[in-house]
Structures are given as structure tokens and as C-alpha cells.
Write a protein that binds this DNA or RNA. Structure first.
Lengths: 195, 195
DNA sequence: AGCATAAATAATAA
DNA sequence: TTATTATTTATGCT
């Protein structure tokens, strides 16, 4: 158990993920492209690879290789650029894949229990410096909206935002400090005639 | 308009600044060093980053990466200390850059900056990328054991591990960074219900 | 060719 | 200003 996460269970997850991917004859790149369709940002091959946390169990498994070679016109190091056309092509694959995933009751249990990334992020520093907070895009949107209206929110406003978003008050306060600083830096550079 | 500042204008500035930097093939660190020569205090990479107020528009731009590797003997988090020698080296770059900045109205013509890029490549030694280190299975075993106990080892612990295993301290530090990232990515994928 | 992951760069919380 | 986190790139293997 690290930071409230069961590493063994993650190893199981990684194994299952890989097996399923292989059973569908998909490369990591293809999975990444498929995910790019339904989820927001593009997933690179490397991201998929990282997500597997494969190093945790690779040593214990004999390495596996695909026996299927797939169409791959481009350099694998290039950024993935998914076109609507290719998205259309891969979508049914993803849907089927996700559907099969649903039927795996073992992982459903997981899904319902792990909806909060934030739990993992904010635990135990054991050091002096506070652990860096990761804001969700939704939180940032709200914060930025407030900032555009008022760069100096009152104490009450800060408390309200903190409560609404579920972050510590101090974290929100610091966010506004940093944001004001960023704005100031920009103005300073502009006044120096750069650009 | 916030506090008498036009936010849209700042966004435009940030965009323009980034485009120019990239078209010259410069990193944020390099620009910071260049500025340190002519302007007073040193500009760190982070300062440049802040000045760009990038978060204001990052979502709207596909992120871009440099293809040039620059001298990086030292920890990038250390304060930049610019020597007269390196200052001398980078000065022409800055001068050229500022000169082009003078004609700030012609963004489209900046395409031709690609031609000039070659002029600058020789300026900075542009050292090679560090050779990817290969950890022994024994080393990985020890590192993973540490990671399972503590994902955020202290500086002292990192130094100890590095010495014990015979790797550079920085290499060990980066290993933990990457390892934390891998764990986080796994958690993220799990929370998305994949598999 | 495809995968795993070290290294580099950018962004930003403290 | 500093110290991490977030992303991307690209190398070493199989």
C-alpha cells in the first residue's frame, strides 16, 4: 500500500489491460488513438505505456510480443494526430473494448472505488514543503472566471470558493497570489518593450 | 479589463512571444539567459514561463516542443548563473532576436525565420542528450522497494541511494519523478474505468 | 516495429 | 525563486 493505493491490485490491472489489448490485436498506439476520440486530450503511445505501470511486473513476466503487424505509415515518435476519418474507423473497436470491460465484474468494483484521484494526490508529505496541489480543469475554469472579474477576492469570497471547489482555503488564497504575480510579470515584460 | 490591464492584449502577447521563441529554436532557459545579459536581473526559465501567462491560452494551442538540445550540465532548478563567456556566446542571438522584434507587425513574414535558424544553431554548444542509463535488475529491485515504502524520498535518501547503487544522484531523482508519474497515470486510467 | 521508460522541457504550486 | 508536477521526446531492447 502506497499513498492509499494497493500496488498488487495495480499490477493485476496492468496485466489485465495488456492481455485484453493483445487479445484484440491492438497496439498501444491504436489504443491511444481510440482514447483520444472519447476522452479529451490525445494519449501518446508512451502515455499508454506509462499507464500500464508495466515496470512493476515486467520483470516477473516473460515479455510478450504482438504477432500481428498493423498499418503504421508514420514515425512512432511523432505526435499523434487523429483525423475524424481514422477516429471513425477505430470507434467501433473502442466501443467493443469498453463494452467487454464493463462485463468484467472484477474491475467494475475497482472503478466505483477509485473515482477520486485527489485522494491519492493530497496524502502525507513527511517533508517540509507541502505537496503540490493539482487543480482539476473545472476548478481552474471557475478560478479563472473569478480572477477575470476580480483579482483581489475578499476573505469571504476565498472561503466560498474553497468550500465550493473542495480545496483548502489557503490553497485558493495562494492561487490568487500566484495568478496576480503571473499577470504582473507579463505586464513588466510588456513595459520593457519586449515584443 | 482587470486592474486597468487588457487581458486580451496579454494573451496576444504571450502567443506572439512563444511563436517568436520557437521560430528561433530557443528554449525558455535560453531566452532567460539572453535577457540576463542586456536587462538587469537574471530571468529564470520559470520567470519566462510565468511571463507568458501561458495558462491563459495553452488550452487553445497545441503544445509545441523544441527539437534542439542545449547544454544542460546542471540542475535546471538551480538558479541560473550566467558567465561572461556564455553571455558573450548568446549575445548575437539576443540582438538578432530583438531586432526582429522591432518589426513586430509582420508575423507572417516571420516564416523566413526558419532560414535564419541555422545561424543560431552553432551559437550554443548544443550538447548531446544524456545517454539513457540502464539500471541493473538489482538496482531496480532496491529502488522499487524504496518506492513502495515512500514515493517521495528526501534529498538525503536520494543521495544515499545514489551512492549505494553507484548512480548519479540526478539519475535517481529523475527515476522517482518518473515513477510517481507512472503510478499516477495508472490511477488516472483506472478512475476512467478503462478495463 | 513496438514497447518500456530515461531524459528533456514546460508549467505552475508553494 | 524554488521545487515539483505535467507532457513530450527519443533511446535501448526485444
Amino acid at each position: 500500500m502506497v499513498d492509499g493505493i494497493d500496488l498488487d491490485e495495480i499490477k493485476e490491472f496492468a496485466k489485465a489491460f495488456k492481455l485484453r489489448r493483445l487479445s484484440l490485436g491492438l497496439t498501444q498506439t491504436q489504443v491511444g488513438q481510440a482514447l483520444s476520440v472519447t476522452e479529451g486530450p490525445a494519449y501518446s503511445q508512451s502515455a499508454i505505456c506509462s499507464a500500464l505501470a508495466a515496470q512493476m511486473y515486467a520483470a516477473q513476466l516473460s515479455s510478450q510480443q504482438q504477432n500481428m503487424y498493423v498499418e503504421n505509415g508514420k514515425n512512432k515518435f511523432e505526435k499523434l494526430d487523429i483525423t475524424p476519418k481514422s477516429a471513425q474507423k477505430i470507434k467501433p473497436v473502442l466501443e467493443r473494448w469498453m463494452k467487454e470491460a464493463e462485463e468484467s465484474s472484477h474491475w467494475n468494483r475497482f472503478k466505483s472505488g477509485q473515482n477520486h484521484l485527489t485522494d491519492y494526490i493530497g496524502v502525507e508529505p513527511s517533508k517540509k514543503r507541502k505537496r503540490r496541489t493539482s487543480f482539476t480543469p473545472q476548478a481552474l475554469e471557475l478560478l479563472n472566471a473569478h480572477f477575470e472579474r476580480n483579482t483581489h477576492p475578499s476573505g469571504t469570497e476565498i472561503t466560498g470558493l474553497a468550500h465550493q471547489l473542495g480545496y483548502e482555503r489557503e490553497v485558493i488564497r495562494i492561487w490568487f497570489c500566484n495568478k496576480r504575480q503571473a499577470l504582473k510579470n507579463t505586464v513588466r515584460m510588456m513595459s520593457k518593450g519586449m515584443v
